[in-house]
Amino acid sequence: MKKLDYKGYYFIAPFFAIFLTFNLYPVLLTFYYTFTHYEGYGEPQFLGLDNYVRILTDSYFLEAFINTWQIWGLNFALQLGIALFLAALFSDLRINIKGLGFFRAIFYLPNLITISSVAILFNIMLDWHYGSVNQFLLKLGIISEPINWLNQPFTAQASVALILTWMWFGYTFIVLMAGVAGISKEYYEAALIDGANRWQTFIYITLPLLKPIMLYIMITSLIGGLQLFDLPMLLTDGLGSPDGSLNTMVLYLYNQAFRYGNYGYAATIAYMLFLITVIFSGITFKSMYREAKVTKKRGNK
């Protein structure tokens, strides 16, 4: 244990001063609304715990919870898989792929466009009759009749997950590469000399050393993923069609607040979501931490 050093407070003081000034009031106000019936104007009426009782029996919220996980899970697996694969390629000294700067910039392009433009674009591309996705697949002979992508729960969820992957794999890749850049080249050179193959280098050097960055990716993606809403809102009717399969937790929150004027209940959804995020982040932290210990032990051997 290092000795305590008060100087740390100076460094974090500006952050917390600003943080408490601008973020705390809105957050606490929202928390207060969870105990009220509030329509977004006038005086909130105090309700006690009614909103919490309601949310525990709300089948729409349960549906939203499941949908969010399905969409996020598929997206995250794909996105991380692609990004890790790319990171492995670019960190491999042996193949020595050129043009990292170029590819990194190009892969990040989809993330530059605002989400509403993305939604407009894919709305047109996924159109049942006129969409280029169906035209393309038909021409290649992969499907024999057009698929109504946004009208079936499974294809709708998969579409959203794939669009998200398209938007975010570049981001994850950039973040991973920033972590890779922090790893000293000496490790790789040593591995090369020891005759470790590509796979071994990646598993035993890159991955363990990327652990802190991986934790960052996991946690931020979890937070962002659980708050997924603009794409599902913009792609179909904004109510979660088809069959409620695009009804995510924050879309539900948004509709309760801004469509139906149930601010108090929407605030309750926000805090339930907060709780869920905290729990799952905790689990992620714990499991990453345990793995880290295991690797360290192995390293000592």
């Binding site: 601008f22 809105p26 106000l29 708050q227 924050v250 805090y271 907060f274 995020t277």
Partner: peptide, 14 residues
């Protein structure tokens, strides 16, 4: 923890 609170409802308070 604070970055886990969904921000959509904070707008009026802000």
């Amino acid at each position: 923890l604070m970055m886990m609170v969904p921000g959509q409802l904070g707008l009026i308070g802000f």
